[in-house]
Design a protein around this nucleic acid. Structure first.
Length: 467
RNA sequence: GUCGGGGUAACACAGUGGCUAUGUGGCGGACUGCAGAUCCGCAUACGGGAGUUCAAUUCUCCCUCCCGACCCCA
């Protein structure tokens, strides 16, 4: 079964066929580092982290590149306010980025290029754009891309750019030959961080860094280019123009865009100020709840953000996590049998993979996990599941979890010393209960609860877990 | 205005031309000394209109409402 990807370029789901068999080159737009990342960024990061995990799970050799925009107007402005250097400021937030990404269980990209460290390839590309007649330098030392030189501007946005509302907010710059022209190189103002170039001191335009880094690290044509859907225009549209002006070849075969996170009906964004930092949210919710919350919907849909939603995600997830730890425990306690549940586990695996293959439908994949939970919970309580069968389900859930990352991999892990101590306590408590000394048995349960261990008296035994 | 994504039961969010969605919450049971977990059952759906069809929530068209993009933005 092949993977279908909704390609922004065509608007349709297309069968995924990478340029090179078995290999995937993916570039995901990172963040502009002038502040901590917020939950909107988290969504994008978790979505593409999961996609990369899945592609790897399917056997693809994936090269994943995510950039940092560390030179930019806002960074410069904020650095000036704080009285620090622009690169000093961005370095600080890059540090925060990695701390926060770790809190979200994000697996690292292979390469994290920074605009400030890629000046040679950026300047080279700007030069090529001019050479090939797609750009022009102005008197003040800026370089603009000339949109009149391309015939199909708007391919990704799926419309003629001239039909888009001219909001009047496009900077009226007399240096530009066409108001839609955009800067690939910006002349430095006095005191700004800058680099030497053939056009004078300056810094890269927003879009050029991605074009240059992709080319340097992944080549002229990549397989997947991803990012938030707010980047489609102008950022990705302009990347296409720049790269294709230079290479004459399509930048990316597939374009994927995740939907925005909304706060009270509005997009969460730094400029609106209605954002929630990952570092704050993760004080209250762990990575598993956060990941579940995001993966419990399709990556393209808009998603409402609220603490209530996160809390609900946490509750829902607990059901799956309970099932997982229960199965692990059952492997040790359950009756032995022929363990021939192969067909059954295959059914769930197929269901899960079918969902993931259909444009990475994590929501539908999670539904399969809930079905699995219900069925195995039942067969465990009835004792009809063998320990060998339970072990197979555990391996299957490990497989799923390797892709989604929604519960701790070491959940229910053996802890010899604690295991035996708990065994003693549970036996002791069972004896007390037999003698109807409930005050004491309840005291043990309460005190264990205080210590972070939850006891559950199930019909067929006592379960305990760390919480 | 142009383009894109949506409107599914209390809430969230999948999906399908006819067959039990799923989770949270609610109600009622089972289990239980209690608590919790788990299981079983119940209730509330597919924005509006027209069309295609034996049959549409699912396809087509029209309308309407919401969100997003068009300065920066995941």
């Amino acid at each position: 079964m092949s993977i279908l990807i909704r390609n922004t370029l065509s608007g349709a789901k297309e069968v995924f066929v990478p340029h090179e068999d078995g290999k995937v080159k993916i570039y995901v737009c990172g963040v502009t580092v002038y502040d901590d990342i917020h939950m909107g960024h988290a969504r994008s990061m978790i979505v593409f982290d999961t996609i990369v995990r899945y592609l790897r799970h399917c056997g693809y050799d994936v090269t994943h590149v995510t950039n940092f925009t560390d030179v930019d107007d806002k960074i410069i402005r904020k650095a000036a306010e704080e009285g620090v250097g622009a690169l000093e400021l961005s370095a600080r937030y890059i540090g925060h980025y990695f701390e926060d990404a770790a809190k979200l269980g994000i697996r690292k990209a292979d390469i994290y290029p920074k605009a400030s460290e890629e000046m040679d390839s950026i300047i080279e590309m700007v030069g090529e754009i001019i050479e090939k007649g797609f750009g022009y330098a102005t008197d003040d030392g800026s370089v603009y891309f000339s949109v009149d030189k391309v015939k199909d501007y708007g391919r990704l946005t799926n419309q003629k750019i001239e039909y888009m509302e001219s909001s009047g907010r496009v900077a009226l710059d007399e240096q530009k030959r066409n108001p839609m022209d955009f800067a690939v190189w910006k002349a430095a103002k006095p005191g700004e961080v800058s680099w030497d170039s053939p056009w004078g001191k300056g810094r890269p335009g927003w879009h050029i860094e991605c074009s240059a880094m992709i080319r340097k690290y992944l080549g002229d044509e990549i397989d997947i280019h991803g990012g938030g859907n707010d980047l489609i225009f102008p950022h990705h549209e302009n990347e296409i123009l720049q790269t294709e002006a230079v290479t004459g070849r399509p930048l990316s075969k597939y374009w994927m865009h995740n939907g925005m996170l909304q706060v009270q009906g509005e997009k969460m964004s730094k400029s609106l100020g209605n954002f929630f930092r990952v570092r704050d949210v993760s004080q209250k919710f762990d990575r598993y709840a956060i990941r579940f919350y995001f993966l419990n919907t399709h990556y393209m849909s808009p998603l409402l953000y609220s603490e209530e939603m996160l809390a609900e995600a946490r509750t829902s997830l607990e059901r799956l996590a309970n099932n997982y730890t229960d199965l692990k425990a059952y492997v040790k306690q359950g009756p032995s049998g022929d363990g021939d549940v192969c067909d059954v586990t295959d059914e769930y695996r197929t269901g899960f993979m079918d969902a993931m293959n259909d444009d990475f439908n994590t929501r539908a994949a999670i539904e399969v996990m809930f079905q699995l939970a219900r069925v195995t919970n039942k067969s465990m309580s009835e004792g009809t599941l063998s320990r060998e069968g339970a072990a197979k389900f555990v391996r299957l859930l490990d497989e799923f979890n390797g892709i989604l990352g929604i519960f701790p991999e070491d959940a229910g892990k053996d802890d010899g010393a604690l295991d035996s101590v708990m065994g003693i306590l549970i036996d002791l408590r069972a004896e007390l209960r037999k003698r109807k000394a409930y005050d004491l048995s309840d005291l043990i349960r309460d005190r264990l609860g205080d210590a972070g261990i939850r006891l559950e008296d199930a019909g067929d035994g006592v379960k305990w877990k760390k919480i």
